[in-house]
């Protein structure tokens, strides 16, 4: 008996879940969902929720396999090389699929042909945040300050989605801000609160408390529409600047998976994303689900690669 199982006993009895008899399982072997981040982040938690539901709803043993490193390319490379039998899936996102193909001269995998893109899970939206006491309350004032005294902004890393967004905003607003990269958004926000940064980009939902406390001020959202959590916050588009950069996530497998199996997995994921508990949890994390077929999801990945390419090139993300 595995230690983790023994330890889980008291908790499982609390849960009293009963596994249903196997209505739509696609494989007898346990399924592994590879995550491109170390355990603990939102992405990891999403994967665990999906795994947990697959296990309890479909009697399908599913485990999360964290393979962080090199912007998610380690995990993607690994999954691309696994057999396409549905036992190895990846919780993909912008980093290995829509940024890395442009960022790196050579990738060990093909982001489109090397994978079967199965199901789109959703996206969370980043916003532009500024110091609440700096006298900047509109995007126009932001532009004016950037042109007069210069503005520094913190991102969660070189080549991260918030860096790409910073570049997109610079392009759209025709300004030049000073990029200060951090390792993740938490240290950037810490420096912002220490007063050394003028602004930063981060996911809106994760800043709920800081906004309520008056420690930070969101100026504009990079989504196609306003967020239910903050109905007063305008989008860049409404303000006349076409900036939509979202942090998407989806489930993919190695290339060449059986279409029937893809449909089964896709439908399972759609069912999970419709579960009220999951819906509530996703809303709290600011992840907005949109229904997409596997074909639509594949097109989405392809289009996003092309859409972001000029931004990533302009952001000079590999030190050249």
């Amino acid at each position: 008996m595995k230690l983790s199982r023994i330890l889980a006993l008291p908790a499982v009895t609390l849960m009293a879940t009963t596994a249903l008899a196997d209505p739509g399982a696609w494989s007898d072997a346990p399924v592994r969902i590879v995550v491109t981040f170390p355990p603990g982040g939102t992405s990891d938690l999403v994967a665990r929720i999906v795994a947990q539901h697959l296990e309890s709803d479909y009697g399908q043993k599913a485990v999360v396999d964290n393979r962080p490193g090199a912007g998610g390319t380690v995990a993607a490379d690994y999954v691309a090389q696994q057999p396409a039998d549905g036992t190895t899936l990846i919780l993909g996102n912008n980093a290995p699929f829509t940024i890395a193909p442009t960022q790196f001269d050579s990738l060990p995998y093909a982001p489109l042909d090397g994978f079967t893109h199965i199901a789109y899970l959703g996206a969370s939206t980043p916003a532009l945040f500024v110091q609440p006491d700096a006298g900047i309350t509109t995007l126009d004032q932001f532009i004016a300050t950037a042109n007069e005294t210069g503005i520094t902004y913190g991102s969660s890393g070189v080549g991260s989605i918030t860096h790409i967004l910073g570049q997109a905003v610079d392009n759209a607003l025709d300004i030049e801000t000073i990029h200060v990269p951090y390792q993740g958004s938490a240290p950037a926000i810490q420096d912002f609160r220490a007063g050394v940064l003028d602004s930063y980009y981060d996911m809106l939902a994760q800043n709920e408390d800081l906004i309520a406390e008056g420690a930070t001020l969101p100026l504009a959202l990079a989504a196609p529409e306003r967020a239910p959590l903050f109905p007063d916050l305008p989008t860049f588009r409404e303000l006349g600047y076409d900036v939509v950069i979202e942090n998407w996530t989806g489930l993919s497998g190695p290339a060449g998976m059986d279409p029937a199996m893809v449909t089964t997995i896709h439908d399972s994921v759609e069912a999970i994303m419709a579960d009220p508990e999951v819906v509530a949890q996703m809303a709290q994390w600011g992840i907005r689900h949109t229904a997409m077929t596997s074909a639509q999801f594949t097109d989405f990945v392809a289009q996003t690669i092309d859409l972001w390419r000029p931004l990533i090139d302009a952001a000079n993300v590999n030190g050249g």
Binding site: P38, P39, T42, D209, L210
Partner: peptide, 16 residues
């Protein structure tokens, strides 16, 4: 970071 993850899944957001 794992501690933060464990709290987040319970809807507890670390912060001020």
């Amino acid at each position: 970071a794992l501690v933060i993850g464990a709290l987040m899944i319970h809807g507890v957001t670390p912060g001020p």
